[in-house]
């Protein structure tokens, strides 16, 4: 799952190195506009609905966090 998400995000945002940090949001690598794009990409790719409760830093700070969230919502 992690690899699939990493490939998807690297294709969407080639300028961002998603493996560079485990605190992508806290380090300012992802801003709200990028998070919006990631949510859209994950929603379309996996056919999930991401509820607002899930939009917290921990779920977007790393690819592993995003993968865990997607697993929960599938």
């Amino acid at each position: 799952m992690e690899e699939k998400i990493l490939n998807l995000l690297s294709e969407e945002y080639p300028e961002i190195d998603f493996t560079s940090s485990d605190e992508l949001v806290d380090d300012g690598i992802l801003d709200s506009l990028t998070i919006t794009g990631i949510i859209a990409a994950l929603t379309m790719e996996f056919g999930i609905t991401i509820p607002y409760e899930e939009i917290v830093e921990e779920n977007f700070n790393s690819v592993a966090g995003m993968a865990a969230m997607v697993q929960r919502l599938l």
């Binding site: 709200s32 919006t36 929603t43 379309m44 939009i55």
Partner: peptide, 20 residues
Amino acid sequence: FKDYVYMPITINPTLLRLSG
């Protein structure tokens, strides 16, 4: 505004479907 207006609008399923 980001947490209580921007994000809730962004993750609205209709908007996401339209974007798709």
